[in-house]
């Protein structure tokens, strides 16, 4: 649920935000209290003890208890603040294991977001109510990814990976900034975050994926094969973990349950999305599903590629 912006804070659109705002306002009201106390006392003294003819200042005495108490009492308040801040920080530091991983690359002056299926975008698109982990690197100087509505920020440093995670709590859009000064167009690194339903997100992944410009569908299929299939399926007929792709297209293949199946579009598609439905005889049932990782376009491209392996 989106919480509307308050006078001091932007809208609250992540699971961190409610707790963050609580801590922020706790410190705020404590500060207001201390400020009014200190400045109120000072103002009152300045008025009450204003210089008057014939009235001298009273010599300063000692008050050990007063001094000790305003040295020690703050320590307790500060310890509470530290504790609250550190716990909140730990929650933000450790991403849940099931988080959707998005690769972020920053450069002077832009952002690239890459999704698990290889889709890219300039604005960040994420599903609602699902933890998302950003794995970030920079091509040149230090940048910093900042989404005020999520209350997250992390530097993006060349030569290393930094990560940050969040879980959006409502659909909608919000702003994303670069928060570390990076030169001329630092302020032009403003982007949007679109938070959509899971269905819309899947649809987006499928639509925005596709061969990189200038690459044929077949070559793109080969590229995907190299990234996703190569370690288990050979092209030269050798037996690795799974069956080879050589001469496989159009063949009649025997399954572990004795069924004989033709290797066609439907079979390949089913094997990618639900690999254990039909396992080729003589091979272990170990293939993971690529549901959510490979979209329709990628699967089509892979099919196109497999047809060509002779």
């Amino acid at each position: 649920m989106t919480q509307e912006p308050t006078f001091q804070l932007p809208p609250a659109m992540s699971t961190f935000a409610a707790r963050y705002d609580e801590t922020y306002y706790f410190i705020y009201w404590l500060s207001v209290l201390l400020f009014v106390g200190i400045i109120g006392a000072a103002a009152y003294f300045v008025w009450k003890y204003r210089r008057r003819p014939g009235v001298d200042a009273e010599p300063t005495g000692h008050n050990a208890i007063l001094e000790a108490s305003w040295t020690i009492a703050p320590i307790i308040i500060l310890a509470v603040m530290f504790h609250v801040g550190f716990r909140g920080y730990l929650d933000m530091a450790i991403a849940p294991g099931n988080a959707l991983e998005v690769r972020v690359r920053a450069w002077q002056w832009g952002w690239d977001f890459e999704y698990p299926n290889g889709a890219h975008s300039n604005d960040l698109k994420v599903p609602v109510n699902k933890p998302v982990k950003l794995i970030m690197s920079s091509n040149d100087v230090i940048h910093s990814l900042f989404v005020p509505a999520f209350r997250i920020k992390k530097d993006v440093v060349p030569g290393m990976y930094t990560t940050v995670w969040f879980e959006a709590t409502s659909t909608g859009e919000t702003d994303l900034f670069c928060a570390e000064y990076c030169g001329k167009d630092h302020s032009a690194m403003m982007r949007k975050v679109f938070i959509v339903t899971d269905d819309e997100f899947q649809k987006f992944l499928e639509e925005s994926s596709g061969p990189p410009s200038g690459m044929s569908t077949e070559d793109w299929g080969k590229k995907i094969y190299g990234e996703k299939c190569k370690s288990c399926h050979s092209l030269d007929g050798s037996k690795v973990i799974g069956p080879t792709f050589k001469h496989v297209w159009g063949e009649m293949v025997t399954m572990t349950n004795g069924e004989i199946v033709k290797v066609d579009e439907n079979y390949v598609r089913e094997s990618i999305l639900d690999p254990l439905a039909k396992v080729v005889a003589g091979y272990p049932p170990v293939m993971p599903t690529f549901k959510g990782t490979l979209g329709d376009k990628e699967i089509d491209a892979l099919i196109k590629f497999i047809q060509t392996v002779k």
Partner: peptide
């Protein structure tokens, strides 16, 4: 000084840092 408390508090600093 009091606004320094916001920045010293880790979770709160993350949002306020570099703003």
């Amino acid at each position: 000084g009091l606004t320094g408390l916001f920045l010293g508090t880790l979770s709160v600093d993350i949002h306020l840092h570099d703003t």
